[in-house]
Amino acid sequence: MNAFKNALDRILTWVCVALFAVLVVDVSYQVFVRQVLNQPSGWSEVLATYLFIWLGLFGSALMFGERGHIAVDFAVRKLPEKVQIVVAVIVQLAILTFISLVLVWGGFRVVGLSWDQNLPGLPVNVGPLYLALPISGIVTVFYTLYHLVRIVTGAERAVNLDAEPELL
């Protein structure tokens, strides 16, 4: 399970880096062709929006893998360790429920409904772009199960003490 997680981490990391790098190039290109060449692009803004959605969703999956989503844990930290484990298990189950219902099931339904809906400006349909929802959902489900097992077996702390404050 660990080896699989490491491989998944690495793939997701490189996907995110690539998406982000293309994003920077795409928007720079948009400004350049409009302001310098006076030839506005018809697709750069649409492409940027989709790259960004994929980056956000895959990055979010990766953050579930790192247990890095913003949480308020001051109350939990004061609990006895046994109770902390119980609470942490409930939290992981809550993540599992939300992700599998919304991102995976709901995601596949949206993909189905929009599969052959065409997208102006880009040579792709809307449906495949929505695949980011179920794919990131399935990855997150794996990560959540991974943490669930490790919390129950005591391989990992109930409260993530290394969580860095993330804020805009």
Binding site: G59, M63, G68
Partner: peptide
């Protein structure tokens, strides 16, 4: 650069999901 892109991805992704 890849490390920096990932640092920015972490913050961004958390906020985007939210």
């Amino acid at each position: 650069l890849p490390g920096m892109l990932m640092d920015a991805t972490r913050t961004t992704a958390v906020v985007m999901f939210l």
